[in-house]
Amino acid sequence: MIKTLVKRLWLVPVALVAWELITRAVDDPFMPRPTVIVARMYEMWFSGPLILTDEAVDNFAPSIIRLVGSWGVAVALGIALGVAIGRTAWLSDYIDPLVEFARAVPPPVMFPVFLVLFTMGTQVQVATIVFGIIWPILLNSIDGARNVDRLQIETATVFGVPASLRLVRIILPAASPKIFAGLRLSVSLALILMIVSELKGATDGIGYLLASASDRSDMPALWGGVVVLGVLGYVLNTLFLMVERRMLTWHRGARRTA
């Protein structure tokens, strides 16, 4: 166990030491030493009474709440609409080009639409995230719900299984591998849009911390913000993969025996 960990991770400390040595040698104000970055992060964000300082709580919390909240809204909307559209066979030809087009719009372009529509702040950010990430979820849900095995549904119908139960027990599980593929894309996209929407004209959030550090040319704080966002990205991704593995175990098992 320990041996494999050492084998896998030995390059990480080596890379960190190399980074420290190189930045010491170069002595470029834009490339602060990692020790300086960590010290600055501790002083700014992690030296509070309950580890986190006020600055950290006031900026990390709104970011994460907006991110998770908007993601939840987009997931609920995307799956509900997607399954409804996917199960309505005649609709697909009419709606396909519109959905394909909407997906092709680079998500950050949504941001100014909401800048015009709302006053700056949470509304803009939430709307940008929701409308930016809903398309992969929607498209995959449509695709997944459309390609459910007909035999299974017809069998269930013949045996008088009510529609609501057919949805929960047959359609959603059959579509879930596809849906999860869309969800995985949406997680990283949500993080990207959260940052973009906070870099410009926000008053709080991790993106705002980055922007203000950049205004002050505070390089250690700027690098520190990148580290925090990297950790956030890592944690979100890992959590998502855990949930996905748990929800889709049956799928992989079924595929293996098939």
């Binding site: 990283s188 993080l191 990207i192 940052i195 973009v196 870099l199 993106g207 980055l210 922007a211 550090a213 950049s214 700027l222 690098w223 913000g225 990148v226 966002l229 990297g230 990205g233 890592y234 979100l236 991704n237």
Partner: peptide, 12 residues
């Protein structure tokens, strides 16, 4: 490195 959202690197 991979999970670092690339837009976080913009100011840097």
């Amino acid at each position: 490195l991979r999970p670092i959202p690339s837009v976080a690197l913009i100011p840097l």
